[in-house]
Simulated scan of single mutants.
Amino acid sequence: MVSGRFRRLLALAVLGTAAGLASAATGLTVLPAPPDSGPVTVFYPTSTVAASKLQRGPFSIDATLNAAPLRGNGHLVVMSHGSGGSPWPQADLAQTLVNAGFTVAMPEHAGDNWHDMRDVGPATWKHRPKEVSQAIDAMAADARFAPLLDFQHVGVYGMSAGGLTALTLAGARWSPAGLSKHCDAHLTEDFPTCVGLLTELNGGPFDPLKRTIATWIIHFKFADDTAMQGWDEPRIKAAVASVPMAAPVDMASLAQPRIPLGLVRAGKDGWLAPPWHVDAVRAACKGCTLVADMPDGGHGSILSPQPPDLPARAAKLLNDPPGFDRGALPGVYAAITAFFVKNLAP
């Protein structure tokens, strides 16, 4: 669902920056890793057009490395990737934002990225909002970007575990014990949320044993960790949570988010089943905006370019379900961009 109103807003945003971006292309640079975090990849407007595509692993990116930046619209959006993620499967959304004048910073989350997954789960969920703050600090300290950006009106976008980051920065409070309680109540229906890629229920004779072991592990690791997690970052003024991890959230904390909060929904999400994640947020947050609804989309359908050659279990959860039309993604990205255009004006 992408409204005509959002498309009009995006068109106005593009027209509003047309004078400064008439010949703009996309620049790409990487800032050094802040303490206890990973490097920060930055997509930004530039006047230098790439002579050829940049190759990053299996991904080809239309961007010019270390080109001189342009101001664009003067706003920064920080993007928080999902578990095991990297900047590259979110490059097409980043470039849509750049085309509208935004600068986009993507921190690599320590212990939960494409080459290091030792802290996947609540350990990294606690740390991610701080890494967003550190990414803003890193951009403000960089001589190339500091004069060009308004660091008091920053947006945050997050997908999956990054969606929980976005919810947290919008005011959500959550606890590992909340995840344990959720898995007690909905282990079978939301099994991938509770166990990730470790195993799956397949209707076989070992399913009861899998459920028993999963429950024991979850209780051992999380049931006693009742401390509510949050993070206050006053520079963040708008957030979009895409297919967010939301089961651990105290939904009362989202009844009145502290900033405009947009949501992206995938109706056939097999990893974070909508009833206990994005739909639960929508039910609690009457003021939230459903920025885009992909009724036939899966958990990874928001990603473009798609990660290739995934392991079988990850592919089952991240690849597009039958019937999903990737031709809808430009409209989804336009709606996300329009949400930030509307809500980051001082």
Rank of each mutant, 00 (worst) to 15 (best):
M1C: 00
S3D: 07
S3C: 01
R5P: 02
R7P: 00
A11P: 01
L15A: 13
G16A: 09
G20K: 12
L21D: 15
L21W: 04
A25I: 07
L28H: 05
V30P: 01
V30Y: 05
L31Q: 13
G38E: 13
P39K: 07
T41K: 15
F43N: 02
F43L: 08
Y44W: 11
T46S: 07
S47L: 04
A50H: 06
A50L: 05
L54V: 11
Q55L: 02
Q55H: 09
F59S: 10
D62T: 14
D62L: 07
L65D: 12
L65S: 10
N73T: 06
G74T: 13
H75L: 11
V78N: 14
S80M: 06
G82P: 08
G84K: 07
S86I: 06
P89D: 04
Q90V: 04
A91H: 09
D92P: 01
T96F: 01
V98D: 04
V98Q: 01
N99T: 11
G101V: 02
T103N: 13
H109R: 11
N113D: 13
W114Y: 15
H115E: 09
V120C: 08
W125P: 01
K126E: 15
R128D: 01
E131C: 05
M139G: 12
A143V: 07
R144H: 06
R144T: 06
H153C: 01
H153G: 00
V154M: 12
V154W: 01
G158I: 15
S160M: 11
G162S: 13
G163W: 00
L167A: 04
A170K: 03
A172I: 04
R173W: 14
S175F: 05
C183H: 10
C183S: 10
D184Q: 11
L187M: 07
E189L: 06
T193C: 03
G196P: 15
L197E: 15
L198A: 15
G203F: 05
T212M: 03
I217R: 12
I217N: 09
D224V: 00
A227R: 15
A227F: 14
A227M: 03
A227I: 05
M228R: 10
M228F: 14
G230N: 13
D232W: 05
I236Y: 00
I236S: 01
I236A: 00
I236W: 00
K237Q: 05
K237I: 00
A238W: 00
A239E: 08
V240I: 14
S242C: 14
S242W: 14
V243I: 12
P244C: 07
M245Q: 12
A246G: 12
P248E: 10
P248Y: 12
L254T: 10
Q256I: 06
R258M: 03
P260R: 01
G262I: 09
R265N: 06
G270C: 10
G270S: 07
W271K: 10
L272E: 08
A273Q: 14
D279K: 07
D279W: 02
A280L: 10
R282P: 06
C285W: 11
A292R: 01
S304A: 07
S304F: 03
P307N: 02
P307Q: 02
D309H: 04
A314R: 15
F324I: 09
D325A: 01
Y333A: 03
A334I: 03
A335Y: 02
A338F: 00
N343R: 04
N343G: 01
P346E: 11
P346M: 02
